[in-house]
Nucleic acid binder design. Structure first.
Lengths: 335, 335
DNA sequence: TACGCAATCGATACCGGTATCGATTGCGAC
DNA sequence: GTCGCAATCGATACCGGTATCGATTGCGTA
């Protein structure tokens, strides 16, 4: 088995002390430029690599952060992750990605796992199923820096990055109204998600401003965020069974849009489907249906910003009590 | 700042030695059941968590493995990752996901990063751009266990998990032939990928067996795997400019299929598009075009298997010289 | 009685960096 | 001449577990 070269090996070879080598390798001002050069050259030549494990142990920091999202196979989150990584790599942090699959249990396990792996901080977007936040509160109480993005909770104060969900939902709904639809249903995400209530508000506001009565019967929730296709089909089946079928649907998310369209294809293949507008960051969905209007979130930017705020928390020398709640604007893309 | 409880704290509190506590916590047979119970209870009560960093340092193992794929926003890879995780978590391993975005440089950086983070092994699916394998060979020579899946290289011997690309490509092409098409183009991935040549073979074989002459002019490669939409558009533009336009296209991958369909929509919105068949694990693409026939790979199973083989390598007490090259079958899904 | 051995637990070095405290040298200033 | 201080480097403890080697006790057996 290959045994990598250590700082002590270098020290011995150059007749220096380990501390000198360590300092030289981290470019300390205490070390003579000449010696520094010797050490760096030797290290380079012998392909020395710092052992981050040992380093972490001593420094009490791992220079890695954890990200928990429901799933990476989702355009919004994969774009957000790209944004996160773009900042992280630049600042020397490593990103560990974890998926909750919108399941409460997996969220708990994974967050625990990440905390155990001694991450320096967490970027969290809540799972759809989660109603109890104690697993997160505990870590926060223990001093672990946490930043929420997209799906946030307000149980305690910290940085958050979201989009203007209310306004986005309003714009999407308005676009459907502008196209002449009056009977507009809403296919919503899990009720306890922050984005769900905000988007619902926007939907309601658009209806109200256009003098359209809100019908509770036109709102359907998906408690697992569409993770189970069956729940989406149930909603669609419900819509199809209504005496007056909705002419259009405002769908809360990407995944739900796909599930919804797929369900309509399966359940009523020959029928004319209602028009659909909704939140989406997919670059595929636009191929799907020419009349699909979507609200696009600046996912990359959100990831970037969340990561920057997290690093700010991590590297702050003093406890932070002043938190940012960034809200970015959405973009309506219609065809 | 919160200071977590350590093994030494427990030892002191219970008037035992750290080694006894350590052994009790790992359920060693050397420790009396009674003492074990005392220790476990105390640890539980005081919410003790083992410090994996310290543990890794001493044991020379991190119980984490690295995965490098081109991107997670890809159904095939996200499904494979799910498979990987399903095995990993069960065996106490943590999965660190890294994206190459089909770029050679990012692949090198990320693999280096993972190796630095002292992963116990790597699961690699090669980037489309990569032609030089020395960064991987180096790590392998240093004894790092590596298993390739999907996009493999044969520069050195190790476990690999792939699908029967030749057969899958053949089936897809055959399905187009069965539908009466004779002029069938092939939109291929980067030429140096293993999957590219294998799928090309299947395409050629299907043509040959049906007495259709192979026309080199109908084969277009995307050197960046479709990462740059421009290259796909270029290929489509090429197809559109041919004196005899292809009636159908066999597309090598998911991403290329999307890019291809999108390009046709943009470049020739009013034209009737050629029929498309190709490799895909997307659950969206089937919504797209009713006549899209796809070859589905058992991605989850591939991930599962690759992870199991990797663990086998990692936990083997003796050097392994006998390697498995698993080839799973594809499934043709037509409508 | 003495010896072997299993059961149980302790002391300590060690994993590879790094923070801390100190030592040495040289030189300008008083 | 001595003092102060900057520059440069060394020795060592320490981070938190864990592998290694030993020590002790008790009991069965020759």
């Amino acid at each position: 088995m290959f045994k990598p070269i250590t700082i002590k090996d270098i020290a011995q070879a150059l007749e220096l002390s380990p501390s000198t080598v360590s300092r030289a390798l981290s470019d300390s001002y205490e070390i003579n430029e000449e010696t520094k050069k010797r050490i760096l050259e030797y290290a380079e030549k012998h392909n020395y690599r710092r052992n981050p494990i040992a380093s972490s142990l001593r420094q009490g920091r791992s220079y890695s952060i954890g990200v928990i999202v429901c799933e990476v196979a989702n355009s919004f989150f994969s774009q957000a992750i790209d944004g996160i990584e773009s900042v992280a790599y630049g600042k020397g942090y490593h990103v560990i990605i974890s998926q909750s699959h919108d399941s409460y249990e997996r969220e708990v396990v994974n967050i625990q796992h990440l905390a155990n792996r001694a991450v320096d901080g967490l970027l969290i977007s809540m799972s759809a199923e989660t109603k109890d936040f104690s697993h997160i509160i505990n870590l926060h109480d223990q001093g672990l820096p946490i930043v929420f993005f997209d799906r946030i909770i307000d149980t305690f104060d910290t940085h958050t990055v979201t989009t203007n969900n209310r306004e986005g939902a309003k714009k999407a709904t308005q676009s459907l109204i502008d196209r002449g639809f009056k009977k507009i249903a809403h296919l919503a995400n899990a009720p306890h998600l922050s984005i769900t209530s905000e988007r619902l508000e926007g939907y309601e506001e658009a209806l109200r401003q256009n003098g359209i009565a809100l019908e509770e019967s036109l709102i359907r929730y998906c408690h697992h965020g569409g993770r189970i296709q069956q729940e989406v089909e149930e909603a669609v089946r419900y819509f199809l069974a209504l005496p007056e079928k909705p002419e259009a649907i405002f769908v809360a998310s990407d995944r739900l849009s796909m599930g919804c369209l797929s369900a309509y294809n399966n359940l009523a293949p020959k029928d004319r489907h209602p028009a659909v507008a909704g939140f989406s960051n997919s670059d595929v969905l636009d191929l799907l249906q020419s009349d699909f209007t979507c609200v696009h979130q600046p996912a990359f930017e959100m990831g970037r910003m969340a990561m920057e705020l997290l690093i700010q928390l991590i590297e702050s020398k003093y406890p932070v009590y002043d938190f940012d709640n960034v809200v970015l604007e959405t973009e309506l893309i219609s065809r």
